[in-house]
């Protein structure tokens, strides 16, 4: 029972980072139609910026904010410079993002080599509750994720901007005629999703050491979760992220760790086959001309 609780807790903290990526993916893919597989590399860049800042003596919270800002800025530049030209043909955007994966990974390797990078844990307290060791850093990651995802949820579903955004997903032309600056919303969503990836990266390096290749597996999980939950469906992404994180936590805890990466692929393939709109329903991407 102790092991079970322990695995659930560990799974939850991994699930948090996956959920942050998946929320970014589900917003970007589901609402703008951009298939950005380099999203995992955005996360990795967030980790690297956080690592650089902490290594240079900055406190972790400042480093985390720097990471988020840096990735948001990167997202803005890349959307303006590259992805907006691929809006009409999503497959091209996907291929471009694969090129970006290679570029970002190897730029990081070029400057900071391919070795593992880690920072000292920002919170070192460990609570013992009934035989279960609760690391405060994991709790921090979980709480921050809940807060940020809740904020995003309110923004998308309750605010004026969120409504305008959903309108422009439903029907781009009509939304534009109603005076909604659709293109600017697309950039906004892309930057928001990038910032979430940056946050995920900063939190990930607080939990585990990372390498320049961490993004590759994380993005597949993010896409798997986004597709399983239904594109553009925040609740679905959170639920699917929890499921995947806990399944992975369990399988790692009970000795099937070499298959953890396969679950996301397998699950995603199954869901795409039998429920192409995800378990919880989604937009399946904006309607393309």
């Amino acid at each position: 029972m102790d092991i079970l609780l322990q695995q659930i807790l560990n799974g939850l903290s991994i699930a948090s980072v996956i959920t942050l990526i998946a929320v970014g993916v589900t917003l970007i893919f589901g609402l703008t139609g951009i298939i950005n597989f380099a999203h995992g590399e955005f996360l990795m860049v967030g980790s690297i910026v956080t690592w650089l800042a902490v290594s240079n003596g900055l406190p972790f919270p400042v480093a985390l904010i720097l990471g988020v800002l840096a990735v948001a800025l990167m997202g803005f530049v890349l959307e303006r410079a590259i992805f907006r030209f691929t809006l009409e043909r999503p497959t091209n955007g996907f291929i471009v993002s694969l090129g970006l994966i290679v570029v970002l990974q190897h730029i990081v390797i070029l400057f900071w080599n391919a070795n593992q990078k880690s920072i000292p844990r920002p919170l070192t307290t460990v609570w013992e509750v009934g035989g279960v060791r609760i690391a405060s850093v994991r709790v921090m990651v979980i709480l921050m994720t809940i807060a940020v995802v809740a904020m995003t949820y309110v923004m998308i579903t309750r605010s004026r901007y969120g409504r305008a955004l959903r309108a422009s997903v439903e029907d781009r032309d009509t939304a534009a005629l109603m005076g909604i600056p659709v293109r600017r919303y697309i950039t906004g969503v892309f930057v928001l999703g990038s910032a979430l990836a940056g946050l995920g990266g900063g939190l990930l390096i607080a939990l585990f050491p990372i390498t320049p290749f961490t993004g590759g597996t994380m993005v597949m999980k993010g896409f798997a979760v986004a597709l399983i939950g239904g594109l553009g469906n925040l609740t679905g992404a959170v639920a699917a992220g929890l499921i995947l994180g806990i399944v992975e936590g369990f399988s790692a805890g009970y000795g099937f760790s070499e298959w953890t990466d396969a679950y996301s692929f397998g699950l995603m393939i199954l869901v795409l086959l039998f429920r192409p709109h995800g378990l919880f329903g989604g937009t399946s991407g904006p309607k393309m001309a």
Binding site: T91, E258, W259, I269
Partner: peptide
Amino acid sequence: LRVSGHHFVIMTFAFGQLLTIILTN
């Protein structure tokens, strides 16, 4: 091919990754 358009590309990518994992394990 049950899934259309750009999902197909993602599927081929996922299957490719899956095969690597299977070969490794």
